[in-house]
């Protein structure tokens, strides 16, 4: 393969993986923006999405097959269910902690993460489960780019979700309320905004997006595992920091950028796939040192 073909191929791969990161990072960043919580359980929500998609498929396949139709239906149902799980977690575990010291709520988030992945581990006996679909895996070429139907649909779907999300945040009242709460929760309460409802909605939307990303990852990789959320939680945080934590377009941008960095990074000799994760962690540290407010963040002179 010629060098430019490799580059184009990696560009595509990077954008695809990056869009998964971006979708997870949005929820991470939204929750951080609104209640200043690093939600460790967010990666596990992604994992939960993949598993609920799998459960749906295993039920639905005999009836309606495992083509795009049932996959999309499964995705919508999983987004709804996992979104509700996110709201439930928020209600039970996080809301009582909103006024507690920051350390307590961080530990609570860790506890939630442990509960989620250990439950799924026990239910799945810790095995890798195949994520079977009936979607064509035949590849075709678009110029130098080798594609499959799956990959094209996935990338289109991911970008569509991000676009819908962007419209939701910028154009609707809910989106405005979310942004307002992230600026000043107490004032919002005084202005008559139902803060708890908006926080719950944030968790719903964030979790639903993560679930969607989880299912898409299942389709893409073909197997799922209870521990799949751990690393992506870290990557999503990195993406959120790169874009500017709390800023939603930043999370998408950061996700895509991180995907690209990884996919090109693995092409560099010495780095390769073995050091891929070390490479992206190094980027996190570099960003924290040189651009702590992220690409889209403003410097904060306003403290206290």
């Amino acid at each position: 393969m010629a060098i430019h073909e490799i580059l184009i191929q990696q560009l595509f791969n990077g954008l695809l993986i990056g869009s998964f990161y971006g979708l997870v990072a949005i929820g991470y960043s939204m929750v951080y923006g609104i209640i200043k919580l690093l939600n460790f359980a967010h990666g596990d929500i992604y994992m939960l999405g993949a598993f609920s998609g799998l459960v749906f498929l295993s039920i639905a396949t005999p009836a309606i097959g495992a083509g795009w139709g049932s996959l999309i239906l499964g995705m919508l149902i999983s987004m709804l269910l996992v979104g509700l799980v996110g709201v439930f977690i928020q209600r039970v575990a996080y809301r009582p902690m909103l006024k507690a010291p920051r350390l307590s709520i961080l530990i609570t988030a860790l506890a939630v993460s442990m509960i989620l992945y250990n439950t799924v581990m026990l239910l799945s006996s810790g095995r890798f489960l195949p994520f079977r679909t009936e979607i064509s895996t035949e590849s075709f070429f678009l110029g130098p780019l080798r594609l499959t139907e799956t990959r094209v649909v996935l990338i289109v779907a991911a970008f569509a979700l991000m676009f819908i999300m962007h419209m939701f945040i910028t154009k609707t009242m809910y989106g405005k309320a979310m942004r307002a709460i992230s600026l000043d929760r107490d004032t919002c309460q005084l202005m008559g905004i139902d803060v708890y409802k908006i926080i719950a909605l944030t968790f719903f939307v964030g979790s639903a997006l993560a679930a969607a990303a989880g299912i898409m990852a299942g389709v893409y990789y073909g197997t799922i595992h209870f521990y799949m959320g751990f690393l992506i939680g870290l990557k999503a945080f990195t993406a959120a920091v790169i874009g500017g934590i709390g800023i939603i377009p930043g999370a998408m941008l950061g996700g895509l950028l991180l995907g690209l960095l990884e996919s090109f990074g693995t092409q560099i000799p010495f780095i390769g796939t073995v050091w891929k994760d070390v490479f992206s962690f190094a980027f996190l540290i570099l960003f924290l040192i040189f651009k702590p407010n992220g690409l889209l963040g403003r410097s904060e002179s306003e403290r206290m």
Binding site: F237, V278, F281, L288
Partner: peptide, 24 residues
């Protein structure tokens, strides 16, 4: 780099560091 910013960033950076160390 982490503590210069926000205390709670340390949590996730150490989480990442733990994983990176194991991989290394």
């Amino acid at each position: 780099p982490t503590l210069r910013l926000r205390g709670d960033y340390l949590a996730i950076v150490t989480l990442g560091f733990g994983e990176i160390t194991r991989l290394t």
